[in-house]
Design a protein around this nucleic acid. Structure first.
Lengths: 357, 357
DNA sequence: CTGTTAGCGCCTTCAC
DNA sequence: GTGAAGGCGCTAACAG
């Protein structure tokens, strides 16, 4: 039993399929009577046209691709959900891939999306985790697709594409400054893999903050992690058993923050009593629990919205120039740190709002 | 500048497009020499065939649809990630929708998937949140699609479809029994919306456990929530300020657990010292933090895997009979509760394993 | 082995 | 206002 097609409808209505097509797409061009007759039959047969055939015929595509590293990381989960909801409102159909930070999966996903002839693409690349040629190969694929692509979260300048990114330098810079302003001369940091630009940016902020404050950087307090809680935990243990344990720590993403907190708990240390801490990324559960968690919110929803805005603009007008947007960090701090930060002019003032965003 | 097509390749190679098609699909049928010539040109022109056209021609579909309520809930996030990774390994292309628990979005998603002519569908329905006709309309759409669909997490028996579900009755039953066995005669429960079958099942387990233990149910300790942390928090506050505050509480999903814990913290109560607690669903962060959290794991990854297994089986052989699978609860308890549970034969023995799954 | 033909389901000219 | 014809990009017979 095959699907009913436009031919079946035409036949049953005693008209040509061109007419059926017209009532489907330009109903004003069809005589009201025949139109109603056709529509009745369409309803009766529960017919609905194939978007596949329609796309082929129109040389158009109503699908967009989404490539992200880890769907089940709340950061990307929130982004994905936002994107999916917007595509849907825009009449676009989302095809999703999860690369698990594996650049080979980037390629594979790009190839599939290319073959599927998507009309556009939101892409959080993992190519920095690969060899030197990974970015190049990805760029090649991206260009082959010949459709708009908007990067999100992670930039790869060589791609020369639009993108929406978090201002990680500023986040690292100001977070560190705040900790220093709070009286700490020994601020530790647990970074992500420094293969990643976003991890380097945050570290650069940390370093420049020291410089700006005339404070020497203590290399022993810089730990290169990989944005996983496990590694962060191990590094934090090391850090906490240093003879000169840092008085404050900056962790560079959500999972890293968790790993750090685990090590802290294990040592029966508490924040801020024993050690000060600011994490980058919101951690939703702490919000649910109304638990204090000094952090820098990354505006996930905003990122996703802007990315979709850029993408749809480029889809509508392919001549749109690539444009990059940086989302400013938003600091969510306890009363003490906030007071310090505001007094020193590091952050503007009490910026209230759901940290969920 | 349009995409190069099979015609371009054929022309440049001086062969017919049938031959090009053959080297693409049945390369053994083509003379090695011409094959290589064609392949060279394909590579040179960076040609890759359109799956859209191919699917149309084959009357096949390489896409599957995924409809879930909330991508950014870690439960569904994990499921989605697992599914996406499997589809990808199976050569299928995943199209995802998020309904936000809104049955109208169920319909909308189903319609799009129908029009997109997906080859199959994994579906966690939200229709129980809608009016009486919601399930019926969804079933109609499902049937119209004429492709295999596997339900996940939430069952709608009327659909008469395969599915993979969590055994919520057993979870509620045994969790309650454990709490009773631990000496509590006053076990409270915060359920999900009782419009949902999965919420009713868990409550039913709770009720029957009381009966099995010859313990009267205290209606005042039953709170109907909606699976959100906010509601759970408000209800928990009520519950905790009851003159006869329960000695133990069962919460029925991850967010509900969080809401309860928030209320607990607010009252400066601690578990298990002041009150005993078992939650249904794993909460990943507690895992990361190595925090004790008595709970019933729902086997998210396993659910997703089984669902995909059922789906691919049905896609391969459309005559496969619908089959439903129930995932058994796995209890992750602290030493005390575990000892009690094992001694009473409520759970088998120390079942170790990553609660992450 | 390879080319020709027909068709997948739909849309869009171009006539009438 | 409507139909016939051609084409979107590809595959599957059917001949030769």
């Amino acid at each position: 039993m095959k699907k009913t097609t436009i031919n079946d409808i035409a036949e049953e209505a005693g008209v040509s399929k061109a007419t059926v097509s017209r009532v489907l797409n330009h109903e004003e061009l069809v005589d009201e009577e025949t139109r109603n007759r056709v529509l009745d039959i369409i309803r009766k047969r529960r017919y609905s046209p194939s978007l596949v055939a329609r796309n082929l015929s129109n040389r158009a595509s109503n699908t967009i691709g989404i490539i992200i590293p880890e769907i089940d990381n709340s950061f990307y989960g929130k982004i994905l959900r936002t994107i999916v909801n917007i595509t849907d409102a825009e009449g676009l159909i989302p095809i999703c891939f999860d690369t698990g930070n594996n650049p080979e999966k980037d390629m594979k996903s790009l190839r599939i999306l290319r073959d599927q002839r998507v009309g556009g693409l939101i892409y959080a690349p993992s190519v920095e985790h690969g060899g030197a040629d990974a970015a190049e190969r990805a760029k090649q694929l991206l260009d082959d697709m010949g459709v708009p692509a908007v990067l999100i979260d992670r930039n790869v300048p060589d791609f020369q594409r639009s993108g929406v990114f978090f201002d990680g330098f500023d986040a690292g810079y100001r977070a560190t400054k705040i900790l220093i302003a709070a009286g700490h001369t020994d601020v530790g940091i647990i970074t992500g893999s420094l293969k990643l630009g976003i991890a380097r940016e945050r570290l650069r902020g940390y370093l420049e903050a020291h410089e700006a404050c005339g404070l020497p950087v203590r290399r022993t307090l810089i730990f290169e992690g990989d944005f996983t809680s496990k590694t962060a935990y191990l590094l934090s243990r090391e850090m906490l058993s240093l003879p000169e344990r840092p008085g404050a720590v900056l962790t560079c993403n959500n999972d890293t923050g968790l790993g750090f907190l685990q090590a802290l708990a294990e040592r029966k240390l508490r924040t801020p009593r024993d050690i000060e801490h600011i994490g980058i990324d919101e951690i939703d559960v702490f919000d649910d629990l109304r638990m204090r968690y000094n952090h820098v919110a990354r505006g996930r929803v905003e990122m996703a919205q802007k990315a979709m805005k850029l993408l749809t603009a480029q889809i509508r007008n392919p001549d749109t120039r690539p444009e990059s947007v940086w989302i400013a960090p938003r600091f969510v701090l306890d009363a003490h740190l906030e007071r310090v930060a505001v007094r020193r002019g590091i952050i503007d003032k009490k910026q209230k709002g759901a940290s969920r965003l």
